[in-house]
């Protein structure tokens, strides 16, 4: 274990992540509120944040659960949302080959959009794998801890916040904050347009299947647009949500 750990890089990673946690706090709070609203006990709501550790999956699970969607549909929706981790995992994998199993498992567990975004450049540019992994784990640990604190705040605040504040609107705003910067080229705009139209057109589908179907429509549109516009040869990965 020790051969893979650099204390100074761990602390550096933790420090660099601190400003990012600020943006995560409202999202974590809403996840706590949402889990309670979906009928979870406080312990289950916190366990969800500790184990799942993915805002998008947690909030969708909570919303679908509250809407009475079947178990399989909730799981399938969370599965589609988690597909982006395949992309991050593949981007990090080449740099982690020399790292032992336990550390790779830890890196995987702490892999989030924010942790990926803040460390991928370092993995690409520095060959000090020990420092890079420690840096990643330092940042990832801070995120994980901040996520639990925010969830607890949400669990406690859920009962107190008046409905007139419309706190649930924070959810689309969080996703919007991640979505808007992605829309910087034609392909991304096509993906957005198709997914948006599909989400509206399919809204009356049973069991809340419209989200998965609209997402898949957007993905297919993106692949087709890549081909038609002659792009899609790059494998550059961008952080999503």
């Amino acid at each position: 274990m020790r051969t893979h750990f650099s204390r100074s890089a761990f602390i550096e990673g933790a420090r660099d992540m601190l400003p990012m946690t600020v943006g995560l706090i409202p999202f974590g709070i809403v996840c706590g509120v949402g889990a309670i609203a979906a009928g979870a006990s406080p312990v289950a709501a916190l366990a969800m944040s500790m184990i799942v550790f993915s805002g998008a999956a947690q909030i969708i699970a909570a919303q679908l659960l509250a809407a009475g969607a079947p178990f399989a549909v909730i799981v399938l929706s969370c599965f589609v949302i988690s597909l982006r981790f395949l992309m991050y995992s593949a981007a990090l994998a080449p740099y982690l080959k020399p790292v032992d199993h336990r550390w790779r498992n830890l890196v995987a567990f702490l892999l989030t959009d924010q942790a990926f975004a803040s460390s991928i450049r370092r993995f690409r540019e520095s060959s000090d794998i020990r420092a890079n992994v420690s840096y990643f784990v330092g940042g990832g640990s801070v995120l994980w801890l901040a996520w639990q604190i925010a969830t607890i705040a949400g669990i406690l605040a859920g009962a107190v916040i008046p409905a007139s504040w419309q706190l649930e609107f924070v959810v689309p705003l969080c996703f919007l904050a991640l979505l808007a910067p992605l829309l910087h080229d034609r392909t991304a705009l096509i993906v957005f347009a198709i997914a948006a139209v599909a989400a509206i057109a399919l809204n009356s589908m049973p069991m809340r299947l419209s989200m998965i179907c609209a997402g898949l429509a957007g993905i297919v549109a993106g692949v087709v647009a890549d081909r038609v516009l002659g792009r899609g040869t790059t494998t550059e990965v961008e952080p999503g949500n």
């Binding site: 959810v171 689309p172 997402g215």
Partner: peptide, 25 residues
């Protein structure tokens, strides 16, 4: 990673975020 999968996965964030955000607003 198979190239087609890699290309498809690049569109997952924009597509899924749109599918979540648009119906909510």
């Amino acid at each position: 990673m198979p190239p087609l999968l890699a290309r498809a996965l690049r569109h997952v964030p924009a597509a899924m975020l749109t599918a979540i955000v648009v119906p909510a607003i």
